[in-house]
Design a protein around this nucleic acid. Sequence first.
DNA 1: GTCTATAATTTGATAGAC
DNA 2: GTCTATCAAATTATAGAC
Lengths: 168, 168
Amino acid sequence: MTDTVTAILDAAEERIRGAGYHGFSFRDIAADVGVKASSVHYHFPAKEKLAAAVARRYTDRFVEAVNAQVAEGTDVVEAWRRVFRAALQRDGRMCLCGALAATSHELAEEIRAEVKRFFELGIETLRQGGLERAAAIRVLAALEGAMLTANILEDQSVFEAGSSALVA
Amino acid sequence: MTDTVTAILDAAEERIRGAGYHGFSFRDIAADVGVKASSVHYHFPAKEKLAAAVARRYTDRFVEAVNAQVAEGTDVVEAWRRVFRAALQRDGRMCLCGALAATSHELAEEIRAEVKRFFELGIETLRQGGLERAAAIRVLAALEGAMLTANILEDQSVFEAGSSALVA
DNA sequence: GTCTATAATTTGATAGAC
DNA sequence: GTCTATCAAATTATAGAC
């Protein structure tokens, strides 16, 4: 993966997490990266492909980070909470898949499938950690909701409060 | 409030709940209502004003519905859960303020203030029902997250699972 | 791989007739 | 209060030079 592709994915991720799928343009990304819009199109022929690639990378990284925590002996629920917290504190923005899921109704099928994968993998890893399906859903829902609420209230302590019931 | 204004607000609410603030145009709304885009502009001079008006009406109606439940003797947490559930089941879409909050970073100040009001009023009514602030945040976060997760997984039972821990 | 140039369409918004 | 007509800008996307 070239530097330009990485920079494009980084910029698109930040934009989507701040303004949603319809909230950015190829020119925005190009300006962020320091190239022209046509160069972005060279790497990603269509906006849908770009967003799908961003979601794929985001999910892969996210699940990998969770698995790394679990491998170190962290409880799986706490692991998910930590990775969510890190994403909020580092970037001060919504979860990418949460931002896309919030407006999933009009989302292109390819993107929706990638976003769905994030939530299905979340449920799967939590179940592998011993949780029942309903409990796994509760954890993911609480974390997405806590992140969203902290975002709009512009108060990161809201994330702690919103996700505090998950801690054993 | 004229019929046209009501129809415009209805259409805009549905569009925003499905695709977010940037996911619709004046022409979309006009087509939904059966008028021309210039007529929409007559009632709402700018897109920001339209979205802010939609959020204001949504919050007012939502809180009113919750208060009506509480007045009938329903527990305040259960009241919030019921009104969220009704919004999901009736429209099959995200909470309007949740959809806007998810991409709040780039939102016009006027709109963000209205969305913020939804969450602050939520916390306020829950606290009046006897909950501590952290508990109130947990309830709102869980409900928004449960709605979002049910939305992307296209399974309304996910809302029940995601919000089930709130029931005493 | 990146650029310039451009096509085709859509966008938010306004002016003015009725 | 709604319409037609229009604007200026932005949008996704492509063609072809370098």
